[in-house]
Write a protein that binds this DNA or RNA. Structure first.
Lengths: 223, 223
DNA sequence: GTGAAAACAGGACAACTGTCCTGTTTTAGT
DNA sequence: ACTAAAACAGGACAGTTGTCCTGTTTTCAC
């Protein structure tokens, strides 16, 4: 009698690869359709994995969600925001470039599914302490990176009353909210508008601070 | 034989009141726990209604969600944002008052469950066209109300290069995003920071425009 | 080679989801 | 008073949810 059945579904053990496939599929699903709207059976089908494999790598749905946040969402923020801003010549330029990149990407794919971090933040922050902590850490890192860049911009010019942390918070908040509005009206218009406003504000703010720093009553006229 | 049983659950028909109770309970549940995280059985228990009553007033969960958005969420935006801003002496004052009011309310209740409109927008916009349209309409009304107030502020002073619509978009986006950050870190700090930044920006922007409008190189010193 | 642990397969399971259905009671028109 | 419709009661229903369980296969240390 065959201990090995006729065609016993040959498989190649690849724990790392399987895990990546799972988290990838979950990241896409959670980001677009939402965490609670995505069933695990549905997810298993999309990722091409069985229940045994899923429960082996992630004993609960929460563990999978946490992995998505810490691995994929954090990475996405790093790639689309933090690195481009850090590499840009100035914060204003970096922000403008990031917005432009995201807008063109959205126009290419047709629909606005929103910022993955924001989507999961609003859905999960109040539901679980671990989710909240993981998401908060990403927001913190994001905000800090922009604040650092803003401070680097002002290196040399001795300006006192410019709050880099506050401005970084404004930038992150404005982007998040603009993306929410873009998702609500399925249009990139709010993003384009806020991008323009933000760069204008930062440039005004920094140049204004520079002028005030001259401690005289009149600004430097540029004509 | 008793056609009328011993104690046959006397009830008082009150279609309007029952509907209100249902939408109220659903508004609270959807705003805090989310649309998909709220089961209808759970909701029936909280509202104190039976399945028959629920399905009579709202044949589907979507119908209930739509009623929550159009009745309660729209009203909430009207009460907490549009009316206060409209009644304020200036847009900047109105915005500051709204933020202060919301912040103190959040501090009183201890937890940050987020902006109801934003919560439902991110959860439902991509899921259903009707939801998206209803939410988009509220965003539109919100933004337009602020833009109108900004234009009213500038009545008299002939300023050309101030885009009220863009500034209104910025205000709504910044508030939405700040509330999202506040929810993510369970702190009102982002709201307080963005409130300060916003009022500063509006005042700088309008006064700067006024100064530029003088078409001279120096601003009006106020001392 | 042998044993043990890791890596998977495949399905069972109870709990829950939203919807619907059959009755009963109240209301209102005539 | 009679009747039809509206307003509810209470539960049944099939589908789905996340989790868990028993096997089988691969890997690896010794």
């Amino acid at each position: 009698m065959p201990q090995r059945p006729a065609s016993p579904h040959r498989r190649t053990n690849d724990p790392e690869g399987l895990r990546q496939r799972l988290v990838d599929a979950a990241y896409i699903a959670f980001s677009t359709r939402g965490y609670h709207s995505t069933g695990l059976h549905e997810l298993k089908r999309e990722a091409g994995v069985t229940g045994g494999a899923l429960s082996h790598h992630f004993p609960t749905k929460k563990a999978l969600g946490l992995a998505v946040i810490q691995d994929r969402v954090a990475e996405a923020v790093e790639l689309t925001w933090i690195t481009p801003v850090k590499l840009a010549t100035t914060t204003s330029d970096g922000i403008q470039a990031v917005f432009a990149s995201i807008i063109s990407e959205l126009e290419r794919k047709g629909t606005v599914s929103g910022c993955p971090l924001n989507n999961l933040a609003l859905e999960l922050s109040c539901q679980d302490k671990d989710f909240q902590a993981a998401i908060e850490a990403i927001f913190m890192r994001w905000r800090t990176a922009i604040a650092d860049k803003l401070r680097a911009d002002l290196r040399g010019s001795t300006i006192h009353d410019f709050d880099s942390e506050a401005m970084a918070t404004l930038v992150v908040a404005t982007y998040s909210g603009a993306m929410a509005m873009a998702k609500a009206c399925q249009s990139v218009a709010p993003l384009a508008t806020c991008a323009k406003q933000l760069t204008s504000i930062i440039q005004n703010q920094t140049s204004l601070a520079t002028h005030l720093n001259l401690e005289s009553g009149y600004p430097v006229s540029r004509s």
